[in-house]
């Protein structure tokens, strides 16, 4: 792959999705874009880059962005956030909201939907939330995984990665093509194609935001920008969950870590700028 080819892909991905691709990500481009080369009968990445620079390349640009931003996901990934959601965030926010007001939860990199449905299962398992409306919004920049998320149909392999037996019986139905999400759970979640770098305001305000394993792909200014945009969409007493390898430290002063809870963050208040952690966030 020539430096010009790398620059072509890096520029496209950076502009369209915020994804940062360095020269060390050669293998990632090779493996993720191989199906596109095959589908278009192109020889190699240099040929694909040339096609991208040619007129009328919008469709192929979409395909490249989609292939590079689609990430593997699984049900109840890294159990910790779901435990915190069950034992702290949902009970606290439920108690804080007036009856009849829905709790809104955002899965900001929903991919094929496993995280959004895991959030739904967690809330359905909480008896105290029985009369609380829960709205879950799953967004992703990639169209194809979102179509799978909407379908709510998973292979035996995908379903076994993370779904405990008790949850399987309650929230899935056997289907000739795999395992289908139960209708009640499906109805709790809406999926929308959305770019995190775009205007987030139309999505409305959320009580809880899951934005895990997304920031790691962005450069520092983009991380700061995305966290600031999320801060504007989250309720003052809301909770943000980031991935285990992500942090707000040195990136954003809009959020502070919830003490003792890896990956959970609360909005910073005037107080927290004097280093007092918000006890209410737990």
């Amino acid at each position: 792959m020539t430096p010009t080819t790398l620059e072509t892909f890096a520029g496209l991905l950076r502009t369209r999705s915020g994804l940062v691709i360095g020269a060390d990500k050669d293998y990632l481009l090779q493996s993720r874009l191989a199906p596109i080369l095959k589908a278009h009968g192109l020889r190699d990445l240099d040929a694909l880059a040339a096609r991208l620079r040619a007129p009328a390349s919008e469709k192929i640009a979409d395909e490249i962005v989609e292939a590079m931003t689609t990430n593997e996901t699984l049900f109840f990934r890294d159990g910790t956030p779901f435990a915190h959601l069950r034992t702290h965030a949902l009970p606290r926010l439920h108690a804080a909201r007036a009856p009849g007001v829905a709790l809104r939860i955002w899965s900001a990199a929903a991919s094929s939907g496993q995280e959004a449905y895991s959030i739904g299962i967690t809330s359905l398992e909480l008896a105290e939330l029985r009369n609380r409306a829960i709205e879950i919004v799953g967004t992703d920049i990639a169209r194809e995984p979102l179509a799978r998320a909407r379908e709510g149909l998973y292979s035996q392999f995908e379903m076994q990665r993370g779904v405990p037996m008790q949850m399987l019986v309650k929230y899935f139905r056997k289907d000739p093509a795999g395992w289908r999400i139960d209708q009640k759970l499906r109805a709790m979640v809406q999926f929308r194609e959305w770019n995190l770098l775009g205007d987030l305001r139309p999505l409305g305000q959320f009580d809880i935001v899951f934005c895990r394993n997304v920031l790691i792909y962005f450069d520092q200014p983009t991380k700061t920008r995305v966290l600031a945009a999320i801060a504007r969409q989250i309720a003052p007493d809301g909770v943000l969950y980031l991935g285990g390898a992500e942090t707000v430290l040195g990136v954003s002063d809009r959020f502070v870590a919830v003490p003792g809870e890896r990956g959970a963050y609360a909005l910073a208040t005037a107080d927290t700028h004097t280093a007092r952690a918000p006890a209410l966030a737990r």
């Binding site: 035996q156 076994q160 037996m165 056997k174």
Partner: peptide, 30 residues
Amino acid sequence: TEMSFIEQAIENGAQEFIMKPFNEEILLGK
């Protein structure tokens, strides 16, 4: 892998249910 088998497993005191074919990731995950 029919639901009725999983329900019987639960009723009779099994703690988890792995569907074959399995691999290392699934086995260890369970």
